[in-house]
């Protein structure tokens, strides 16, 4: 089981080398992945799974696209 993982803006430093095919443990939540990256959860404001806003408790599945963002604004 692998996912495509992206960490944006200030979170880019936490991006692992194998981000395009990041290995998943069965039942992994977003929170579990964030913890494994060594990324403090408080720094993650926005979670997207397959282009939809999601939470830390969202369970990931094979082939998912996970995007993690800090607080973002502009326009």
């Amino acid at each position: 089981m692998v996912i495509s993982l992206k960490c944006f803006a200030q979170l880019g430093v936490y991006l692992p080398e194998n981000a395009e095919a990041y290995a998943l443990h069965p039942g992994d939540t977003v929170a579990a992945v964030v913890e494994r990256l060594g990324l403090p959860q408080a720094e993650v404001k926005l979670v997207f799974v397959n282009g939809l806003k999601a939470g830390f408790d969202t369970v990931l599945k094979d082939g998912d696209r996970l995007g993690l963002f800090p607080a973002v604004g502009g326009g």
């Binding site: 992206k6 803006a9 200030q10 926005l46 997207f48 995007g67 963002f69 604004g73 502009g74």
Partner: peptide
Amino acid sequence: QGLPTYGTAILINIINEAG
């Protein structure tokens, strides 16, 4: 933090991610 560092173009990735 976000706006000073990346400007408004910080939105490109997130709006793209959101489809």
